[in-house]
């Protein structure tokens, strides 16, 4: 039916998407507005978070409602290592991936014992527990006050430099995610999404693959969290709250979970909308809620997926019209 499943080879079309995404993000600072650089930075970070999440959701078909735990743990890895002076940023940022992966290795086996919505609830429950610990452990995490003034290396002090640094890290990650999806391993993940039982029948150890997907997803979420800590220089337990996990689901579904860059696009739109609406009304909740509702009802395949459908339909409609005109 669709040619835009994450596993499908895009050929030239996807290269065009990569090109557009890179050029647009690389060009943002040329507009000369610091605010756009900040927004762009946040979009990139949230985009990475969402793309990593989609590796689990869109590709493997596992809906986690606890990804904020990994994102937050990544942020706290950078925050704690830097503010306690244990390790420099260049060590701390890669360390987030190890910590995120390790957390997934601990929580993953507990979560994948159940499937479907039970799995979803387990991820949520464990993420809330991680939140509780971060919130409560004053001596270590700073508790509800969080950590401020995270000391960043001189080379990344300017927002512009940090932006390009983020851009590089995020696009390398995108490339890695693409490679993972395209690999034989990725093919197994997609077959698990389509039918876990049947995948099991052909001798695949489904749970092992599911765990691997959770670990990879946790790795990218933690990396995104680490990048965010470096971007804002402040972190807070709210980053682990379930609303954050909900946000990343929203971004992915909004953009489209079955198109590779869908989650990035969703992240861009949500970050942009949040920024705009807050400016104009105190009743932003009803707007965001209304937009979410509209997406759910009218865009079941996300914006990219729906646009594709429209384009296809329009094209076909044109063809039919032509045929009709010629008796």
């Amino acid at each position: 039916m669709r040619d835009d499943k994450p596993g499908a080879k895009y050929g030239r079309d996807e290269w065009a998407q990569w090109g557009v995404a890179l050029v647009v993000f690389a060009a943002v600072p040329l507009l000369g507005k610091k605010h756009f650089v900040n927004m762009g930075n946040e979009i990139l970070v949230m985009g990475l978070f969402a793309m990593g999440f989609n590796l689990l959701y869109g590709v493997t078909g596992m809906l986690s409602f606890g990804q904020a735990a990994y994102y937050g743990v990544g942020a706290y890895t950078v925050g704690l290592l830097l503010s306690k002076g244990v390790a420099p940023f260049w060590v701390a940022l890669p360390a987030t991936m190890a910590v995120g992966g390790a957390l997934a290795l601990v929580l993953g086996p507990l979560c994948i014992r159940l499937s479907g919505v039970y799995f979803t609830m387990l991820t949520l429950a464990f993420a809330e527990m991680v939140w509780g610990i971060v919130f409560k452990w004053y001596d270590f995490t700073g508790g509800d006050n969080g950590i401020q003034g995270i000391p960043m290396p001189e080379a990344l002090h300017s927002p512009l430099r940090y932006y390009y640094f983020t851009l590089a890290v995020v696009f390398v990650s995108f490339w890695l995610i693409r490679r993972i999806v395209d690999s034989p391993f990725g093919a197994v993940l997609q077959s698990i999404r389509e039918n876990p039982e049947r995948t099991g029948f052909i001798g695949v150890k489904v749970r092992r693959y599911q765990l691997a997907a959770m670990v990879l997803s946790g790795v990218f979420a933690a990396l995104a969290g680490g990048l965010f800590a470096g971007y804002q220089h402040s972190i807070h337990p709210d980053m682990l709250h379930w609303t954050k996990s909900g946000e990343v689901i929203l971004m992915s579904i909004l953009g489209g979970v079955s198109s590779f860059f869908g989650p990035l696009m969703g992240a861009g739109i949500i970050v942009f909308i949040e920024d705009m609406i807050g400016k104009y009304t105190e009743f932003w909740e009803i707007w965001i809620g209304g937009i979410m509702l509209a997406i759910v009802i009218f865009f079941p395949r996300g914006l990219i997926g729906t646009f594709d459908t429209w384009i296809t339909r329009w094209r076909n409609h044109g063809k039919h019209a032509e045929t009709a005109a010629r008796p």
Binding site: N38, S234, H236, D238, D275, G278
Partner: peptide
């Protein structure tokens, strides 16, 4: 806090 930082920067 994260949202407020963003607003403050804007």
């Amino acid at each position: 806090p994260a949202y407020s930082i963003k607003v403050a920067k804007r």
